[in-house]
Simulated scan of single mutants.
Amino acid sequence: MNQPILYIFSGLPASGKSTLAKLLATKTGAMYVRIDTVEQGLRDLCRFKVEGEGYRLSYRIIRDNLALGISCISDSCNPIELTRNEWQDVAESVGARFVNIEVSCSDRAEHELRVNTRQCEVVNLTLPNWQQVQSRHYESWKTEVIKIDTSGKNVDQSFAELTEKLAV
């Protein structure tokens, strides 16, 4: 059996990470988990304020699948070193490999346009506005990460860059 891989996506809202993560899931057959979906599901079903619960529940789901030999994709802002390390620990706990992927849009005007015009894919989720995206706490990476800047590129170009860097 091949060693499964956990593809750990990170980046600010509207950078293009979910689009690329879903395309990678389709190409590789990896299981896809979007933290926004998990967190909104917890809000809708359990009626409580969600903080770290979405991540912690997703760690368990992904760990179970990695243990079965199924590669997985985690799609989240993943803005702090703590969650980045926890994702890596999930993979390592079952002998899986992991790849950190940071998606950004370096063109401020293009990023703002994306934030202001995107459609919500998660039922009942309230998307952040531009001011909320700009003020979001997001730490610089201190470990190895594949960086994809989607600014000035279409989806196909960005995905081609990602698959080339991943060699998939």
Results as ranks from 00 to 15, higher is better:
Asn2Phe: 04
Gln3Asn: 10
Leu6Met: 10
Tyr7Met: 05
Ser10Tyr: 10
Pro13Thr: 02
Pro13Arg: 01
Ala14Trp: 00
Ala14Arg: 00
Ala14Met: 00
Ser15Ile: 09
Lys17Thr: 07
Lys17Ser: 04
Ser18Phe: 06
Leu20Cys: 03
Ala21Lys: 01
Ala21Thr: 03
Leu24Ala: 03
Thr26Pro: 00
Lys27Met: 05
Lys27Glu: 13
Ala30Leu: 08
Val33Met: 11
Val33Glu: 06
Ile35Ala: 00
Ile35Asp: 00
Glu39Ala: 12
Glu39Arg: 14
Gln40Lys: 04
Gly41Ala: 05
Leu42Trp: 05
Asp44Gly: 00
Leu45Pro: 01
Arg47Lys: 12
Val50His: 03
Val50Met: 04
Glu51Arg: 11
Gly52Ala: 07
Glu53Ser: 10
Arg56His: 10
Arg56Asp: 09
Arg56Gln: 13
Leu57Met: 09
Leu57Pro: 02
Ser58Ala: 15
Ile62Cys: 03
Arg63Phe: 06
Asn65Lys: 11
Ser74His: 01
Asp75Cys: 07
Asp75Ser: 12
Ser76Lys: 02
Ser76Ala: 15
Pro79Val: 01
Ile80Arg: 09
Ile80Tyr: 07
Asn85Val: 06
Glu86Tyr: 08
Glu86Trp: 08
Trp87Pro: 07
Gln88His: 04
Val90His: 03
Ala91Leu: 06
Glu92Pro: 02
Ser93Ile: 09
Ala96Asn: 05
Arg97Trp: 02
Arg97Gly: 13
Arg97His: 04
Phe98Val: 03
Ser104Leu: 14
Ser104Thr: 14
Asp107Met: 02
Glu112Trp: 03
Glu112Gln: 14
Glu112Thr: 08
Glu112Leu: 09
Asn116Ile: 01
Asn116Met: 13
Asn116Cys: 09
Arg118Cys: 00
Arg118Ile: 00
Glu121Val: 10
Val122Asp: 00
Val123Asn: 07
Val123Met: 09
Val123Leu: 12
Asn124Met: 09
Leu125Thr: 00
Thr126Pro: 08
Thr126Asp: 13
Leu127Lys: 00
Asn129Phe: 06
Gln131Thr: 12
Gln132Asn: 07
Gln134Asp: 07
Tyr138Lys: 02
Glu139Asn: 09
Glu139Met: 10
Ser140Ala: 15
Ser140Pro: 07
Trp141Phe: 14
Glu144Asp: 15
Glu144Trp: 02
Val145Asp: 05
Ile146Trp: 05
Thr150Cys: 02
Ser151His: 07
Lys153Met: 15
Val155Leu: 10
Ala160Phe: 02
Glu161Leu: 14
Glu161Val: 12
Thr163Ser: 15
Glu164Cys: 08
Glu164Asp: 15
Lys165His: 11
Lys165Val: 11
Leu166Asn: 01
Leu166Pro: 01
Ala167Trp: 04
Val168Cys: 14
